[in-house]
């Protein structure tokens, strides 16, 4: 089963990271799922693939009533992000799925109906969780052509999807980055290959530099905190991306 870790809490406003399943088969890429709660409502952030649904559901249920989930946010269309959609809807058919307008016709192949999807326009939008307003931040071509990150300005937390992701070797499975130089080596090849556009990367770095971020939370690997957030943005800004060969 996965472990649930509280990464931010202020009263009933919480961010939980659902991470690191020791029983996960090696052929499945490891993913981080997040849950943001406010009041008695919750939003799942990149709920994960179908194969890991049992582990995510069990871990989440230990901390939160899954029937109180109002929706899910899918940063992009990949199966490791949201192919569990149909299974979550089994528990709460009223859940809404926020995803780029580009993918709102593709994701129904994973499940859901016409009412399930809320299409996010290219410029982003506000996503409510109870009275808390989160911001879908454009991150197109990083790596998907219709890609969003999720910003919580109260928690000063940016969920950054595949940006910041690292494919960590066994034994390096801490929740937070504690040695940036050692960590970033495991992020380099991933970013060079997965991120499709230097121009898009530069724009994202400019935007992220202007935001107050204490926690930068990727979908794979460890979470960047404090000064490592700025270190990562600078590192990413200088990294040439988008060339496979």
């Amino acid at each position: 089963m996965k472990t649930t870790k509280t990464i931010f809490q202020d009263g009933d406003h919480r961010w939980l990271a659902i991470v690191r399943d020791p029983d996960k088969p090696n052929y499945l890429i490891d993913t981080n799922e997040y849950l943001v709660t406010h009041g008695d409502r919750g939003l799942l952030v990149d709920p994960g693939g179908a194969e890991i649904f049992p582990a995510v559901f069990s871990a989440l249920s230990a901390e939160f009533d899954p029937s109180a989930l109002s929706g899910m946010f899918a940063s992009h269309q990949d199966p490791d992000c949201c192919s569990s959609l149909a299974l979550w809807l089994e528990f709460n058919p009223a859940m809404r799925c926020y995803v780029s307008w580009m993918w709102s016709g593709f994701l129904p192949h994973f499940g859901g109906s016409g009412e399930t999807f809320v299409a996010i326009p290219d410029e982003g939008m506000e996503i409510p969780v109870d009275t808390l307003m989160l911001q879908a931040i454009p991150a197109h071509y990083l790596h998907s052509s219709g890609n969003f990150h999720l910003y919580d300005k109260v928690a000063r937390l940016l969920f950054s999807g595949d940006v910041g992701a690292a494919l960590l070797p066994p034994g390096m499975d801490g929740l937070y980055v504690n040695n940036f130089d050692a960590h970033i080596r495991h992020a380099e090849a991933f970013h060079k290959r997965w991120m499709g556009s230097n121009e898009a990367k530069r724009r994202w770095c400019e935007r992220a530099s202007g935001m107050a971020i204490d926690l930068l939370c990727p979908q794979h690997g460890a979470i960047y905190t404090g000064p490592d957030v700025e270190r990562f943005i600078n590192w990413f800004d200088e990294l040439p991306v988008g060339l496979a060969v």
Binding site: P54, F57, S67, L87, F91
Partner: peptide, 27 residues
């Protein structure tokens, strides 16, 4: 069948059984 298998994994945990039993029954 694939979804039932995945939902069935949940029931093995025991703790979440009360949450999933209704869904399993319906399915």
């Amino acid at each position: 069948g694939r979804q039932d298998r995945l939902l069935g994994e949940l029931a093995k945990g025991g703790a979440v059984l009360p949450l999933v039993s209704g869904v399993l029954e319906r399915r």
